[in-house]
Amino acid sequence: MHRLSVLLRNKPGALARVVVLFSTRDVAVESLSLSPAGADGLSRLDVQVRLREGRSVDQLVHQLRRVVDLCEVSAA
């Protein structure tokens, strides 16, 4: 299980793109919560995910960084 903390711009489709990426890369989402983050039109997305065996969370983080409206992502 990995905990991801994502900072997203509040742009239409930003959340969808992240969630579709999980589905595309066969990442199982255990929990997900979205909340406003400050006043700059940003949202904080906290997700717990389970990866396929042999796949690394670093890889997923790099794939998430390709999302244009994603500002930050960290994994724990």
């Binding site: 239409p12 489709g13 969808a16 595309t24 244009v68």
Partner: peptide
């Protein structure tokens, strides 16, 4: 179309 193409585009705008 934006949702349909989410996994096959770098980015999209409406």
């Amino acid at each position: 179309i934006r949702s349909i193409t989410l996994p096959i585009t770098k980015h999209s705008y409406q």
